[in-house]
């Protein structure tokens, strides 16, 4: 049997700039060099010998990747090395992207949040990660940087299959951009797990509702799931069910059923697929209801 061992031997490089990082990974095979962000997952992967890199490229010293910046267009830009703690401390996130604040607060405890980064939570490509579904409901764009240049893409297209991203071996997730929140909009992320804290997500449901100017009709709904499938995903068919509709329990049932049929959760010793579907059904409705209430209560305050 294998057990949690001491770390494997590796060479450590600590670049100070993004350009240095890009040049360090410009030609590398994936297992040869490993990017170390916060390390809360990566250190354990190495201790379990799931990854045995020859070289570890530590990103903690790359100051230019650690920022939360409000954009001129009203959006928000977040550096990939921003810790969950920094996300929680950013007033812009608490005030304007409450779902992101709410989600970060549900991950780990103070120790882990002081180390774990937004970039690591996304790039780890785990289906149970909590930030990606929340960010997907915010329509996040991500920036991939390499020595060849940079490209932007929607986060929802980032995870092609379990444990993988579409980033090339020479690319690094460097920045996350959130568009300006629409009027009459709100979202929530419901993380289901056994204890009150520290647990891995059994099912996570992110919902974001944008209402028409009447404050009642749903103009847009975005739904994204952790552990609803082999990757975090947007349930776009379910979203469509509510678009242009007035909010009501009947249509909510239809949305939840659609979300269930778009999901393909796994059965494992942690939970059965049937139970995960029950959670998806219940929590989808609950998340939409809460988001709708919050968005519609903004009417008259604007």
């Amino acid at each position: 049997m294998t057990y949690l061992r001491r770390l494997p031997k590796f060479e450590y490089v600590g670049p100070r700039t993004l350009t240095e990082v890009c040049s360090l990974i410009s030609g590398g095979a994936p297992d040869d060099a490993m990017l170390l962000a916060g390390g809360t997952d990566a250190i354990l992967q190495m201790r379990r010998r799931e990854r045995v890199p020859r070289r570890v490229i530590g990103l903690k010293g790359v100051a230019e990747l650690d920022f939360v910046r409000e954009q001129a267009d009203g959006g928000l830009s977040i550096g990939a090395m921003t810790t969950l703690h920094s996300l929680l401390s950013a007033p812009a996130i608490r005030q304007r992207y409450a779902i992101l604040h709410e989600t970060a607060a549900q991950i780990g405890g103070p120790e882990l949040r002081n180390i774990a980064t937004i970039g690591g939570n996304i790039a780890g490509a785990l289906p149970c990660a909590d930030l990606p579904p929340a960010l997907m409901t915010l329509d996040a764009q991500i920036k991939l940087s390499s020595h060849r240049g940079e490209r932007w893409m929607p986060l929802r297209d980032f995870f092609p299959e379990f444990g993988r991203t579409v980033a090339q071996d020479d690319e690094l997730l460097s920045e996350i951009k959130l568009p300006r929140p629409a009027p009459y909009s709100a979202g929530t992320y419901l993380k289901f797990h056994d204890r009150q804290s520290m647990d891995m997500t059994v099912v996570g449901v992110g919902a974001f509702v944008v209402l028409d100017d009447d404050g009642r009709t749903v103009r847009e709904l975005r739904l994204a799931y952790a552990n609803g499938a082999p990757t975090v995903f947007r349930a776009m068919k379910a979203e469509a069910v509510l678009c242009g509709q007035l909010f009501g329990e009947k249509v909510l049932d239809a949305v939840a059923e659609a979300a269930c049929s778009e999901s393909s959760p796994r059965t494992s010793w942690r939970a059965n697929a049937g139970y995960r579907l029950s959670l998806i059904r219940a929590l989808t409705k609950r998340a939409i209801r809460r988001s709708w209430q919050s968005a519609s209560s903004q009417k008259g305050t604007k």
Binding site: Y12, G14, L36, G38, G39, T40, I43, L44, V56, G58, K60, G61, H85, P110, E111, L112, N114, I115
Partner: peptide, 18 residues
Amino acid sequence: SVLIDGEVVNACLYLAIE
């Protein structure tokens, strides 16, 4: 747990070199 620059972290998940 130890403090690094005043923030509490797990020393088991932190490389000394960092």
